[in-house]
Design a protein around this nucleic acid. Sequence first.
RNA 1: CCCCUCGUAGCUUAAUGGAUAAAGCAGGACUCUUCUAAGGUCUUGAUGGGGGUUCGAUUCCCUCCGAGGGGACCA
Length: 571
Amino acid sequence: MIKEVIIGSVRRATTNLFKKINSEFQETLIEKSSNSQFGDYAVNVAFGLAKELGKSPQIIAQALAGEINKSKPEKIERVEAVGGYVNFFLSVGFIRNQLAEIYKKRDSFGRSNLAKGKKIIVEYSQPNIAKPMHVGHLRTTILGDALANIYETLGYKVIRWNYIGDWGTQFGKLIAAYKLWGDKKEVERDPIPALVGLYVKFHEEIKKHPELDHRGQEEFKKLEDGDKENQKLWRWFKKESLKEFERMYGLLGIKFDLTTGESFFEGDLRPLVSDLMKRGIAEPGEGGAIIIKLDRFDLPPALIRKSDGASLYLTRDIASLKYRIKKYEPEKVLYIVDNGQSLHFQQLAAIAEILEFKLGPEHVRYGLILGENKKKLATREGRAILFEDLVSQAIELAEKIVADKRPDASEKEKTEIARTVALGALKYEILKEHRNSDIVFDWKRMLDFRGNSAPYLQYTYARLSSILARAGRVGRIDFNTLGEVMELSIIKHLINFPDTIADSAKMYLTNNLALYLYELANLTNRFYEKTSIIKDENESRRNARLALISTTASILKSGLGLLGISVLEKI
RNA sequence: CCCCUCGUAGCUUAAUGGAUAAAGCAGGACUCUUCUAAGGUCUUGAUGGGGGUUCGAUUCCCUCCGAGGGGACCA
């Protein structure tokens, strides 16, 4: 009785919804659904619409429920029943077939060739010469790497670009500091800390002697004008820094296609600025500086040349974007850069529009990593948390835990487990957050290997691997033997993997993928906790369950792989 | 003063405008003769204030309060 009322309401609601959505689909879908037996009506409508609109049946069912609510049917109190019914339907017939499909291509499930031939440039990491990498770099590096992986899996040709901060006034400051207080031997012995020391000292001294600021600018101007001594110092600092960066990326297991810094575009800057002047796009500003007015974009003017003639970050980014578009003809250029630079990228986008570039920059911004006082961690005040300290603390802790939990393992195996777990934990801790949120840095949370964390996912993978290894060869599978709630929930979840990846790519997010994997692991843990798999006397069901587990393991592995996190067969 | 981001449980975070707002940590109670306890089970607890749009608002709009970041010679 109540079901008939629902169907009647769904029929009315569907008509209303169609009017809203797209009249083209109306006839085919109404035809399709009117042929169905009782009960399938709402489901077919939902599925039909879902397919045409590229949305999930649940969403459509909710929309239907909304339409019904609007028409205020008297006999129905909880119209959400339509959504629930679709879910129920989804969990029976449809599901087993889906598992059979996914099982066949479990190692490539989620991959796609849709974007074949398209290029995308992902710029991330951007460490600065003569500065150590700190937790701030960790976020762009790990996020950029994950997004690059995700785009690759969708078939894009990804150009992973590390745009090194190797040009700008800060090097003038560093050179000035070195000339004033630098000790050659000290820098040779331990370059980065020595250089950072100089940089920090310079900023402290500026407070007492403001004229030093000017000295730094002068040194940069000299560098840009080709001064021999400054060039030599700059090359030295850069070489030492790059060595250090390589070591860090090795630790993280991250690779780039290009490590090209701002200085690469140095030669383009003068012609660029004079061209912009000639075309009347740029104009003189206060004190002999050169600016581009962006009034029509509702933005403050962009400074592209300082009054002393030196270039700026923005000048180099204009040249760099122009170069990227011309040389690579990419579909998109992503910049994985923190929130604080929003204005910079808005200005760059506006200038790209004025200059009629084929594309603008796509600023994939992310929140800051804040100190425990919720303030920005600044290198120049010496408050940064160094990347290396973080990694070594994580590994140290992981080693202790491994020694405790796996006394049987060899030293080599222990080291490998500790490293994999520790790095996974750090990466996951950052990637599981929505990129827009600021992260309040917390050692305790970073180094917690329980709960919603990479070690939990790695642990689940290892458990599944262990079951599969013990089970041996899988014989005849009958997927119809699966029907328990837990089994169906897992399969339902597995189905969503490609959509999750697509969402990640579309919105440049990783937290949705992290959450997806956590939920999958959680469902699976609950499943094998209660269900004995290997000892099942029903041979077909045993095999079907092994297939289910094997599929889950594959997806955990590929999903974590996209996040840049490795798994181990034993942990 | 202007712009941007944000405000959800004690803490840290989820939620294309949809179903009973979801987790982890912390707190309380259980659980290792059975495929790895980095696990599983139960439990306490939340949308800054006020309006508006909507069948329906954590989400969109307005306003107030609060936090962080940015605003021409840093990157």
